[in-house]
Design a protein around this nucleic acid. Structure first.
Length: 427
RNA sequence: GUGGCUGUAGCUCAAUGGCAGAGCGCUUGACUGUGGAUCAAGAUGUUGUGGGUUCGACCCCCAUCAGCCACCCCA
């Protein structure tokens, strides 16, 4: 290896074992999403930068998106998130879609950030949204989907939890403390920062913001109050629905969960891994006007997004990633020597016609070499046609797993293998 | 964007400023028509890259790239 061009910073390569994990994740996500009746969709990977500038604020676009001019000079972004594309897609066909919409997607996104643990510049994200209605029961459905996913991959309620709060509840709670409307967004940010700062610094920061000592005390009491949700009709209905949906053990009220995004208006939630520092696995919430910024009539909805990087770290931590199966086919047909290359090809084709996956060794080689290869790639059956078999119209099949072999008529070989495979399945 | 740690064989890692190594893996053979085990032999490096200091640099210095970690940020 002399001058291998490096991969782009923050990207990952998916060799077959990694690709298998990604595909498995995708399949679980699909299964869970579809079990709630959600439809798969996707937007473009390239978008005009204006799409994000309109909604997400300039910081996101200028500092965290991959942006480049196309040949016409127009600024194009590799999509850093899906929500604006979703909003446009919904707005464009607002008149013909059947609401409520239940849509999900799993695809690549790019953010120009410094890579670190759980964060890459190129990643995959599961987005799922319920659009067009505004009930707390819908919020509960999304949180339940999140819980159903955790259950499907084997994460327990001891390992992960979903913290739930409501912005309207917090807003009125702050009002009760006498915190003026214009200060509340800053206080939301302030609450969000609490677990990242030392208590002393946090207190100082609060006073600096303009909160009185009394308000600080009230705020702390608020954040500790595990019964606060009972003051919110929305959350009362939410938790009632959660209980009925059967997976409420994953969800907990937590007044300190705010979420940074400004477009969330009601219930917000965040899933975390519960041991250690508790990494955030996914986040989501309720919004009131998804499509307003792209020119549609306001539509409410609820949704969340989960990145593939952090969930994989958590799954790996708990040993929940399925073992890699390297075998791509159960059968390998060997080539005995130069004069016997055609019959193996015929046999391989016959096996495939019978529904078996077959790998044909590419050239004549010593049998030990071909067997070693079969072993390395995880093939179970090795088929040999040498001079003896050829004369007798037979094949020799070795079952590498059971370490036994048989020499049988060529016409019976496929059936013999399929019989053994079926046995394995019934074990 | 800020700061810290790291970069040596395919992999995991050693090597006081003085001949660049081990384990695993790999290749070949022991095994003339049969994989994993064992044994033996063998191959593999511009020490991330570019400069500098030095008689001499994997080692010290500077820059750069990448990875990891913490900030920042989190759509």
């Amino acid at each position: 290896m002399k001058t291998i061009i490096q991969t782009v910073k923050g990207t990952r390569e998916f060799y077959p074992p990694e690709m298998a994990i990604r595909s498995w994740l995708y399949s679980v996500i699909r299964k869970v999403s579809e079990s709630f009746g959600y439809q798969e969709y996707d937007g473009p990977f390239l978008e005009k930068i204006d799409l994000y500038a309109a909604k997400s604020g300039e910081e996101l676009v200028k500092e965290q998106a991959f942006v480049f001019p196309d040949r016409g000079g127009e600024l194009i972004a590799l999509r850093p998130e899906l929500t604006p594309s979703l909003a446009r897609m919904v707005a464009q066909r607002q008149g013909e879609l059947a609401f409520p919409l239940r849509w999900w997607s799993f695809g690549p996104f790019w953010r120009y950030e410094r890579p670190q643990k759980g964060r890459t510049r190129e990643f995959f994200q599961w987005n799922i949204d319920l659009i067009g209605t505004s009930s707390p029961e819908c919020d509960a459905e999304l949180v339940t989907i999140c819980a159903a996913f955790f259950q499907a991959v084997g994460l327990t309620t001891e390992q992960v939890g979903i913290q739930v709060n409501n912005r309207r509840l917090m807003d009125s709670a702050l009002a009760n403390l006498g915190i003026p409307t214009d200060l509340r967004p800053a206080v939301f940010k302030f609450i969000d920062r609490r677990d990242k700062m030392r208590p002393v610094d946090w207190d100082a920061f609060g006073l600096e913001l303009g909160l009185s000592p009394n308000q600080m005390e009230g705020l702390k009491a608020l954040l500790e109050d595990t019964e606060l949700w009972k003051q919110s009709d929305e959350l009362v209905r939410f938790f009632e629905a959660m209980d009925a949906m059967g997976l409420s053990a994953y969800a907990h009220f937590d007044a300190s969960i705010i979420r940074g995004l400004e477009y969330y208006t009601g219930t917000v939630f965040e899933a975390r891994e519960l041991s250690q520092e508790g990494r955030a696995i996914l986040g989501g919430g309720h919004y009131d006007n998804l499509v307003a910024d792209v020119g549609g009539d306001p539509l409410p909805g609820v949704g969340f997004a989960m990145g593939d990087v952090m969930i994989q770290i958590v799954l790996e931590q708990y040993g929940l990633i399925p073992p890699y199966q390297s075998a791509t086919a159960p059968v390998l047909v060997t080539i005995f020597d130069e004069t016997r290359q055609i019959l193996p090809i015929r046999l391989a084709s016959a096996f495939r016609s019978a529904g078996l996956g077959v790998i044909l060794y590419p050239e004549p080689a010593k049998l030990p070499k071909q067997f070693k290869y079969a072993d390395r790639i995880g093939v179970r059956f090795v088929v040999i046609v040498g001079p003896d078999e050829e004369l007798a119209g037979q094949v020799t099949i070795k079952d590498l797993m059971l370490r036994e072999q048989a020499t049988i008529p060529q016409g019976e070989a496929a059936g013999w293998i399929k019989g053994r495979l079926a046995q394995a399945h019934s074990l």
